[in-house]
Amino acid sequence: MSHDPTSAGASGGLRLAVAAGVMAVVWLVVLPWLAGRPAVARHIRAMEEGEVHPAAMVYTELEHLPTRAAWVERHLVLWP
């Protein structure tokens, strides 16, 4: 893949600095503030108490691997 840089030099550096500044404000100010709002804080607390990892992409990233539950095991039941 070839890439043609869209910009370079001082204007590019300035744009990068602005973008980095915006991201720093969002991550260091806005999101921490949001984390303290009651509804968001409640959600985060519930997830942490349940040891749920909502950002898991696949099951191997979960805190607890899904296993056949005891109530399924009682009947199973691969082919009921």
Binding site: H3, P5, T6, S7, G12, G13, R15, L16, A19, M23
Partner: peptide
């Protein structure tokens, strides 16, 4: 995206 669309990809990184 932020890097590629501001300063672009430096030659040493390409």
């Amino acid at each position: 995206l932020v890097i590629g669309n501001t300063v672009g990809v430096p030659a040493w990184l390409a």
